[in-house]
Design a protein around this nucleic acid. Structure first.
Lengths: 232, 232
DNA sequence: TTGACTATTCATTCATGAATGATAGGCAAT
DNA sequence: ATTGCCTATCATTCATGAATGAATAGTCAA
């Protein structure tokens, strides 16, 4: 008797279909315009069924955001792991490119992040988001520490290692429309400014959110925020 | 805003209507024949709604049984409280009569008791039933102790006080069809036999059920079973 | 510009009954 | 007597969407 297992499988599959449909609609119409009914329609299920899977519409968005953050972190982790020892450029580029592969989607998630943070989330959701980001951060710290204390990092003080990573990728994303990634990397002076700037910026966000025990405003700290939590 | 309160009220009322309808149908058709759908029909609600109130059909029966036990205990308590000091006959008669006011209903509950005990109940249900019976037992013990150590009780050893009560009422109920209540009371010899017999009988039931911390098989114990738990 | 009132939109709840699957009774076949 | 199979019955589950009500937008008067 594995009828029960099958049922669980089908339930999981349906959950994924809901998420897929929600993302599609979000990309098509923007966050303001998407209704739960539309999502249900697209998945071809009843509106009430959505609420068997998610306690609120916000949770759907939250889940999408978390999935995105998770995939970005995975991408970066594997890029760091396969890069030449000390090469921070290649992984940063890989990360940058996977975000910029679909700029509309990336911008959508930036907006979702803002929206979700503005709403007051249920405590369990906050906890879950927090847990993901902590786990991402420490996973990244581990690969960074083992492989990155060389190369471009030599040019910056040790306690800016992780901020540097931030500066590279976040700065590059933000400059996406004005400069090329190569330009960002080449401009060492500008990079240092970025590092400082982004470090402070992360501190701002982190304080405003009350989400993280990791204090990115203190760059000497060994556990900075994780990429993906920098939206906005 | 007490819309919420109103909603709770309506929910409670509906629960009572379900119980009423179930009892009606049980009396009309007997336990074997009553279906959840019939109950729902009579209350004029959907079948699924029943399950918003009760986790199973058995729980409905259980609740009816508990309500009956509770009302019998109340009846007895008030009869003891208002009887002449030392008069066990009047309260026993009152109890007997309230059970025999509707013999069909009383027999129905005897059968329900059997049925429910035969089924293996959910642990929470067992716990609830157990709690009710314990509370009934100690409430009765209190009124008995304060008012009954005289009269007919003088004729039996002290540690049979509560069994005596049992013998009177339970014996009378069981003899309902053959003897009158007065005959049962008058027949002192037969009464003593009853006392012993019922004491053992209660012990049997109690052991078989694993329901009660009170060991009615040990009559010297100060917390015997409560009336209503003697069905069957 | 502000407040008060109404209309509209849409997230969320909840009663519903069709669908599911467990159980029991009948009926052969061994 | 026992086993397997079929069927019917009925307890229980679950997707559903109509109903609810909260939030927002729109309208008008002061």
């Amino acid at each position: 008797m594995d009828k029960a297992k099958e049922k669980v499988q089908r339930f999981r599959a349906r959950e994924q279909r809901i998420l897929d449909a929600a993302l599609e609609l979000l990309l098509e119409h923007g966050e303001e315009k998407v209704t739960v009914e539309q999502i249900a329609e697209r998945v071809d299920i009843g509106k009430g069924t959505i609420y068997k899977h998610f306690i609120s519409k916000t949770e759907i968005y939250m889940r999408l955001l978390m999935d995105y953050e998770k995939s970005l972190t995975e991408r970066l982790k594997s890029a760091v792991a396969t890069a030449e020892q000390g090469d921070i450029t290649a992984p940063a580029r890989a990360y940058f490119e996977s975000r910029m592969a679909d700029p509309a989607r990336d911008r959508l998630f930036q907006r979702l992040e803002e929206k979700i943070i503005a709403l007051n989330l249920a405590p369990e959701m906050i906890a879950e988001l927090h847990a993901l980001r902590n786990s991402n951060a420490s996973a990244l710290n581990r690969v960074f520490e083992r492989r990155m204390e060389q190369g471009v990092l030599k040019k910056v003080p040790a306690y800016y290692y992780y901020s540097t990573y931030w500066a590279l990728v976040q700065g590059a994303v933000e400059l996406y429309h004005s400069k090329s990634f190569a330009d960002v990397i080449e401009d060492r002076e500008g990079l240092m400014e970025f590092i400082m700037d982004v470090g402070v910026h992360i501190g701002d966000i982190s304080n405003r959110r009350h989400l993280s025990g990791t204090q990115a405003s203190e760059p000497a700290q060994s556990t900075p925020s994780t990429p993906g939590s920098s939206f906005g």
